[in-house]
Design a protein around this nucleic acid. Structure first.
Lengths: 194, 194
DNA sequence: GGTAAAATGGAGACTGTCTCCGAATTAATA
DNA sequence: TATTAATTCGGAGACAGTCTCCATTTTACC
């Protein structure tokens, strides 16, 4: 037990810190859903009953807050990949997962605003959930390529980008059927050219 | 000539107004290219040598400035549709035009930031250049559908949305090849299911 | 209980948006 | 050319959002 007399003993994290962090996340999820990804951070802090300083210490950048808010949802989505991969043919699995992705965006107005910021931005492509999503789509496509059902010159992430593009650019209130149709097109278009 | 004694005679527009408007557009194009679509409007005004009031009278909302800046480029793009339609088979014309679209986005960092705001936002879908772009893609797809080369259950605008999504979400510096590949996928996927 | 480490939160600096309106400029008219 | 009235200018400043600093408070551990 090196903890006993190391200089850098790990203290148990303070209870109030934990509490505040969770409250901020709750309020933020609500706020992002209501006001979009640009909701005022100071307002979120206020509604969570903390000062702005506190919010910014927990989440130095807006991105990080968004990331934290949607992390679990994204990871759940990524996890679904394995289930599909195990029970379906490659192409079907890919299609199913893409549709699930669309549904997830649709179901929760929540994720939509976050995704473009998350999946896309030039910055950190290293975040945990980010990486898991990439891994998921890559695995699906790779399996398809190996079985010969998917053309090999395909950047898996582009599929996601296309869908995100459609959804977040969504002008029409009926974007969801559009997105589902697009999935179909992407799938068909992803077959190898014979 | 009712102008002679109508109350609402149209005066010749003032020269300084015209001059300022043009200067603002020049500077804005430059600024958007450099700093993205969120460039500070007050800064643009300052650099154009006018007060913020002037800028805001000419372009009450950021959107309108963006629109004005890229109007000609977009309309040129839309116009290219006819040329393609007249000289190529439907599918080829569609492909060519989509590729031109990608190139236009790539060539000018310019257009990219504007497009998502332009093509997408819930607000006015009525702008001139906006409408022309929609018309162009619709015409291309329609022709393809009629000749049986394109499936009929396809929202033409979704193709644009997908491409815009890819480009503006563009994290990788090599997004352009991705986008070109995506065009290919979209085209293949747009064929009728036999 | 005492103490040092950790966390708080609000005042305020800063930046960007947008408006208001007195002053300046200009096109039309005489 | 001089006058006039419409039009435009442009900067001061109200407002909102972001983010930081640090004196104060809370907490875990002894």
């Amino acid at each position: 037990m090196p903890q006993k007399h190391r200089k850098t003993v790990q203290r148990k994290p303070r209870a109030d810190a934990q509490r505040n962090r969770e409250r901020i996340l709750e309020v933020a999820k609500e706020a992002f859903a209501r006001h979009g990804a640009n909701a005022s951070l100071d307002d979120i802090a206020k509604e969570a009953g903390v000062g702005p300083g506190t919010l910014y210490r927990h989440f130095p950048a807006r991105e990080e807050l968004l990331q934290a808010v949607y992390r679990t949802d994204l990871e759940k989505l990524a996890a679904a990949e394995q289930k599909f991969a195990q029970t379906m043919a490659p192409t079907d699995a890919l299609r199913a997962w893409l549709l699930l992705f669309v549904d997830a965006i649709a179901a929760k107005q929540l994720i939509a605003p976050a995704l473009n910021t998350l999946l896309g931005d030039p910055k950190k492509v290293f975040e945990a959930s980010h990486a898991k999503m990439h891994q998921a789509i890559r695995a699906l496509v790779k399996r398809g390529v190996e079985s010969g059902e998917i053309r090999s010159d395909l950047d898996p992430v582009d599929l996601l980008r296309a869908l995100i593009g459609v959804s977040n650019v969504a002008s029409a209130p009926d974007w969801q059927p559009s997105a589902r149709r697009l999935v179909d097109i992407l799938i068909v278009g992803s077959r190898p050219i014979k």
